[in-house]
Design a binder for these strands. Sequence first.
DNA 1: GTAACTGCAAATCCTTTGCTATGGA
DNA 2: TCCATAGCAAAGGATTTGCAGTTAC
Lengths: 131, 131
Amino acid sequence: MNENKGRYSKQRETIYQILCDNMTHPTVDEIYMKARQIIPDISLGTVYRNLNVLVEQGRIRRVDIGDKAHYDAKITKHYHFVCKDCGDISDMYIDDEMLKDFISNVEEKTGNKLESVDIIFNGVCSHCHKE
Amino acid sequence: MNENKGRYSKQRETIYQILCDNMTHPTVDEIYMKARQIIPDISLGTVYRNLNVLVEQGRIRRVDIGDKAHYDAKITKHYHFVCKDCGDISDMYIDDEMLKDFISNVEEKTGNKLESVDIIFNGVCSHCHKE
DNA sequence: GTAACTGCAAATCCTTTGCTATGGA
DNA sequence: TCCATAGCAAAGGATTTGCAGTTAC
C-alpha cells in the first residue's frame, strides 16, 4: 500500500470524506452526486480517477456486487449482506475463528494458497422481512 | 425455473454445449470466439441474449468475478477460487455442514433472512505457487 | 519549476435494443 | 401460420484516456 503517495487535492479528500461519512456503500454515481453538492464543478472523470487512486493507496476498498462497483471506507476485514428487496448493503462481521478451519481445510484439499475471502450473503434484510 | 420455455435453436444449444464442455468459467467474449468456430456468422448480440435466457431458465449460472461476468454450466452449489497470478477460476466444494452453523449464527445475530451465499477465495493456485 | 492533478470531451469497452428476416412447432 | 429467435447495427451505460490549463510542494 502506498499511503504516502499522491499530493493533496480538495477533490480527493472530499471523496474520501464522503465515503467516511456514509454507512451505505455508494456507487460511483452516488459519490459523484454528493461530491457535486460540495464542489459543484467536479467532473465524473475526476471521481473515477480518485476512487482508483484511493483504492491503490489502500485507503478505501472496492466492493463488487453483481455487476456494479461500490466503495467502502471501512478497510477492516468484513463481509457484506445484500437485501434483494431494498438493495441495501450492510456489513457483516464474522468471528475469524469460524473461517480459520474453513480456510485451512480448503488449502489442504486443493494446494492453493489463500490470501483473502470475499463473501456476499444474499437474502432479505430484517427491515424488509417484517412487511 | 423455466426449463421448458423457449424453442430449440442451434445457437442456444451450441452456447450451452460450449459451457458444458469447459471446465473454465468463460466470459462472454470467450464464449463468442468458441461459438464462431462452430457457427461462423453467429452474432455477439445472440450470444448475450442466449446467455441471459439460459440463466433465466436455470440451465446455467452467472458468476461475477471482479467486474467481469463469467458463465458456468455447473449449477450445483459450489464456490470459486480465483488465482491472482494466472487468473484461472476453479471450483470449490465445501461441506454444507460447515456453512450451516455459520449461516444460522449470522441470521440470529442480524435478523436478516439468508437465501444464498457467494464466496470467492482469492490467492495463488497450486500450479502458480510452485514457480 | 515541475510533476500531479483538474475539467472537459472523446474514445473504449460491455451490454442491450430496435428492426427486419428466418425458422421451429 | 405464428411467434420466438437470428443477424446486424445503432444506442446506451460505465469507465478510461488525451489534452491543455491549474495547483501543490
